[in-house]
């Protein structure tokens, strides 16, 4: 069995003593788009933050491996170097640090000295263009005074610049208008069309299926109350759009009786 993939095994996680994730098993395959859907409070963001190494989440048991390498217990920056990227639902502002400086420092940390300054600059401008972002962005402070749409575009810009192996998109669609949503979807798609992005695996965490119109999922997982209760193809997202989460909840409740 191949060890490739972002593999979550029996993951149990508590926040402030409350168990939120109650045994998650999930594999994000290279080159594929997995959607993780679930109602509010089901534990979606907890999974995202736990994968990225947020210190506020206590892992009770389980493992997360990235192409065979255990990443739980590693510092957040090590996980990023291993190839993990988290697009934040609420990206933090860093007043005083320009976007340009931040991008350069991040790229240099994840992939030291692999680009000349000129090539790095060219890459940034190419990706800005693809995201329909103005170069004035580069001089602004990271997420400082950004609108919701600007923040999400900056997340996508960072993803494109860092070119990770696996990207977890936590509610990247929330608060976006149609244009921004389309830009996000296109950005991910165009990244997948490049040689280095072709193998990228995505975990798209979302409450509503609308982002999946722009970034179609190959596999859909449904998270309810800290457990993956259902996994299926794209049609599962359509079903949720029609029926909401209640029907799936009922099915799960019936099955567990």
């Amino acid at each position: 069995m191949s060890t490739r993939g972002l593999v979550v095994t029996d993951l149990r996680v508590a926040v402030a003593g409350n168990e939120i994730l109650k045994g998650i098993n999930l594999t994000v395959e290279p080159g594929r788009v997995h959607a993780l859907m679930g109602p509010n409070g089901s534990g979606k963001s907890t999974l995202a933050f736990t994968m990225a190494g947020h210190p506020g989440y206590e892992v009770l048991s389980g493992s997360v491996t990235l192409d065979g390498e255990e990443i739980l217990g590693q510092a957040p920056d090590k996980r990023a170097k291993a190839g993990l990227f988290l697009s934040f639902q609420y990206p933090a502002a860093i007043p005083g640090v320009s976007v340009a400086n931040f991008l350069r420092t991040a790229r240099q940390s994840v992939r030291p000295d692999d680009l000349t300054p000129a090539k790095f600059r060219a890459l940034v401008f190419e990706k800005l263009d693809a995201l329909d972002m103005d170069s004035a962005f580069l001089g602004r402070y990271v997420n400082d005074g950004f609108s919701g749409g600007e923040k999400k575009r900056l997340e996508m810009l960072q993803m494109a610049i860092l070119a990770p192996k696996y990207a977890v998109l936590d509610e990247t669609d929330s608060g976006l208008d149609v244009d921004a949503l389309q830009a996000v979807g296109q950005s991910a798609q165009s990244l997948r069309a490049t040689p280095e992005g072709a193998d990228m695996g995505f975990l798209v965490i979302t409450h509503y299926p609308r982002i999946l119109k722009h970034l179609p999922a190959d596999v859909v997982h449904v998270l309810v109350d800290g457990r993956i209760v259902k996994t299926g193809g794209p049609e599962l997202a359509d079903q949720i759009e029609r029926e909401g989460y209640d029907k799936i909840r009922d099915e799960v409740a019936a099955a567990s009786v």
Partner: peptide
């Protein structure tokens, strides 16, 4: 700001 620190770390920047 702990959130800013985590955010930067998650981008690969050592603490």
């Amino acid at each position: 700001d702990a959130d800013a620190l985590f955010y930067a770390s998650s981008r690969g920047i050592p603490r």
